[in-house]
Design a protein around this nucleic acid. Structure first.
Lengths: 205, 205
DNA sequence: GTCTATAATTTGATAGAC
DNA sequence: GTCTATCAAATTATAGAC
């Protein structure tokens, strides 16, 4: 109770840092702007996080921690593959509607510094996740439940169609000549569309 | 003939600027590093391009000019839709194998400054391109040649599956546990795979 | 056209009072 | 814990000699 302010400020800083880093990236973000957004003094950033790099790391880790559990949870259920696909596209696109900067942010920073993935990601995604999904798909192929397809390609296809439209929004909305509202509508349709498109592609007959 | 050097230096600068800007982005790029890469003095950058922003603009424009014609050319042919799809995924993925930084670069910078698209893009993609493709798809749907699908979604699906794997390489290769060579192999398979996957999804029967 | 030297500004980080 | 003032380094940009 005594040190309520302390905790509060730290959260305010992290919240502001998320906003700025996710929109402008590590290189484009300015400590001053983060401080202004948090409504506190610039010195406080260093008091709580020592350096820009450490503050960035906290933001990046929090972004990963927000995304990873959603994937893992779906993959680990015992649903039929088709239902897993429906759950994934629906939940994932909904999630990104609320956190639209996260996918671009993560992928962009990972391209700048590919080694970051080893520190943060390996702990979250242990081998079993991808192995389990791989096995489920391979078994379905053998049983004749779906057309032959490499599990890797199926996964890449689903993830690509779910995430890319968020990253390429400025490009796609211009090419397709959609305004803000129309593009959002298009994205919402994809919650169902992507799943049915994928299922149509792999189901027999 | 007299001023051969002049032209040469300008090209060297642009070439070096492409390398640095496309890898590090506007914010992460340093004029000094561009000069070093070009093997010339930093002052020369300003002599030829006045400012970092103007040099960046030249690089960005050149990236757009490299990508856009490939899309337009394919869309404008009179091939059957299925063959257009095959041409697109094949040629596009081949292209990005050679220029792997371009898609991330364009999309990243467009997110930072969405207004850039109006200056560079509108002139390249006039309305007729997207309209023509839209019409071809709608006609095929009506004739019963393919399942009902919004042209917008079909376009987004194809582009997503072609481009995203390049942008998310650090992420995907880690999740799928592929080394450099294996991931490249996977990408190459996609030249054919994406087209057949899409065709399977939309064809009747 | 090309180089050296330097100006002008921005920015991450710290010292020290309260 | 929080603020003001300031440092030190980095970085874009320019002036001026050759």
């Amino acid at each position: 109770m005594i040190k309520k302010k302390e905790n509060n400020t730290e959260k305010q800083i992290l919240e502001a840092a998320k906003n700025i880093f996710q929109q402008k990236g590590m290189d484009g973000a300015r400590m001053q702007e983060i401080a202004d957004t948090a409504g506190i003094n610039k010195s406080m950033l260093h008091y709580y996080y020592r350096s820009k790099q450490k503050l960035f790391d906290a933001v990046f880790k929090s972004a990963i921690n927000l995304m990873a559990p959603k994937i893992i949870k779906i993959v680990e259920t015992d649903e039929h593959l088709f239902d897993k696909i429906r759950s994934f596209t629906n939940k994932y696109i909904s999630f990104m509607n609320k956190h639209s900067f996260i996918p671009t942010f993560i992928i962009q920073e990972l391209n700048r510094n590919p080694d970051m993935i080893k520190e943060v990601f390996i702990s979250k995604f242990d081998d079993s996740i991808s192995e389990k999904l791989k096995k489920q798909i391979e078994e379905l192929v053998e049983k004749g439940g779906i057309k032959p397809i490499k599990p890797e390609h199926l996964l890449i296809n689903i993830v690509s169609m779910s995430i890319f439209p968020f990253m390429a929004k400025p490009l796609l909305s211009a090419v397709l000549q959609k305004n803000e509202k129309q593009y959002k509508q298009l994205i919402n349709e994809r919650k169902m569309h992507v799943a049915e498109f994928v299922i149509d592609a792999i189901k027999i007959k």
